[in-house]
């Protein structure tokens, strides 16, 4: 059933759409090298970088499209890249 006026009542429902499958390269974040400058966090177009309970930054591979901005911008080279195995 299409809603009246095609209104979408569920905010943020694109979370159902896992865009991780788009990736060609996978960024890998080395927590040891991370200085928590938040640069990767703020520049991620997906909002796919988050803090875990220990306040370490992690990459959510469900959504990461592999643009590698995080890897490029990281000031301590804490984010490396590997080709995705298909």
């Amino acid at each position: 059933m299409v809603t009246i006026g095609a209104i979408i009542y569920e905010p943020g429902s694109t979370v159902r759409n896992k865009t991780g499958g788009w990736r060609t390269f996978r960024p890998i974040l080395n927590t040891e090298k991370c200085i928590k400058c938040e640069i990767c966090y703020i520049f991620c177009p997906e909002g796919a970088i988050y803090e875990d309970e220990e306040e370490n930054f992690r990459i959510n591979y469900d959504y990461c499209k592999g643009c590698l901005i995080c890897s490029k911008e990281c000031p301590t080279n804490a984010i490396t890249r590997v080709r995705e195995e298909k």
């Binding site: 694109t14 979370v15 759409n17 896992k18 865009t19 788009w22 177009p45 997906e46 909002g47 469900d62």
Partner: peptide, 8 residues
């Protein structure tokens, strides 16, 4: 939210 269809 993530899951949007913006280009990488």
């Amino acid at each position: 939210a993530p899951g949007h269809r913006g280009c990488a």
